[in-house]
Amino acid sequence: MKSYTVLKNQKFSVGEYALVPIRYEDRMDILKWRNEQIYHLRQNKPLTEKNQEDYFNNVVAKLFEQEQPTQLLFSYLENDKCIGYGGLVHINWVDKNAEISFIMNTELEPLFFTKHWTTFLKLIEQIAFRELNLYKLCTYAFDVRPHIYQIIENAGFTKEATLKEQCFFNGEFKDVIIHCKFNTLYKL
């Protein structure tokens, strides 16, 4: 398993669920899920296998050695089987904040959306707040899945902003909703 230089610990777990540095072996599952869920991602066209290979070889591979990477990506595992991926993106090391990104196996969404989002948020907070001592985490969500907001708010995030008509979706402009959470354990 690859490891991130910036992290002391490489595995974060709760019960049978864990986040580990993103695994190369999970790249094609991730490609499939991203293409199936393109409607809520900052992705304007389906990914190809070549796109994914290039991304893993030219972008992801470099993240492991960086002292202050712009993103930290993780495979989300259930009993060592990848069922999603996500991480901290747009990391701002000076201002101590990052955005959360997460998608799960599309087939799990109808029955397990709340469970996996809740678990992922607990795990990513361990990394961001305890391991990296970031001060603030945010979510940035196109307003196309309103059921996600209650999950985020139940995890202690507060709605901080609405960017009116920020994204174009299915022939109309949609808002972007931003939720944030502060690190109550933050140490200067």
Rank of each mutant, 00 (worst) to 15 (best):
F56L: 11
Q68K: 15
W33G: 00
E49T: 12
K81I: 13
E25I: 15
E67W: 02
E53G: 00
R27D: 02
I22Q: 08
Q37P: 00
K32E: 12
D29K: 14
Q71V: 07
N58K: 09
V60F: 04
E53D: 09
P21Y: 05
Y76M: 09
E25M: 10
C82F: 07
W33V: 08
Y24F: 13
H40R: 15
K45N: 08
Y39D: 14
Y24Q: 11
I22A: 05
L73A: 09
E36L: 14
F74L: 10
A61D: 15
N79M: 10
P21E: 06
V59W: 05
I30H: 06
E78V: 07
V59G: 11
Q68P: 04
I22P: 00
F74Q: 06
N57I: 03
S75Y: 13
C82S: 15
N51P: 03
Q66I: 04
D26F: 00
P21T: 06
S75P: 09
Q52P: 07
Q43W: 10
E49V: 10
L63G: 03
V59K: 03
L73G: 07
Q66V: 04
D54Y: 05
K62D: 12
Q71C: 05
A61M: 12
L41K: 13
K45F: 06
V59A: 12
E25Q: 13
Y76E: 02
Q37N: 13
R34L: 04
F56K: 03
L31W: 08
L73D: 13
L72K: 10
R27Q: 13
V60L: 08
Q43F: 11
V59L: 11
R23T: 05
E67D: 10
Q66M: 15
D54P: 01
W33C: 01
E53H: 01
D29E: 11
D54L: 01
Y76S: 02
A61G: 04
E49S: 12
E67C: 01
Q71P: 02
I22T: 08
Y24P: 01
Y39E: 10
A61L: 14
R34M: 07
L63F: 02
E53A: 00
K32T: 14
N44K: 03
V60Q: 03
K62N: 11
L77M: 07
N57V: 04
L73Q: 12
Q37T: 04
K62L: 14
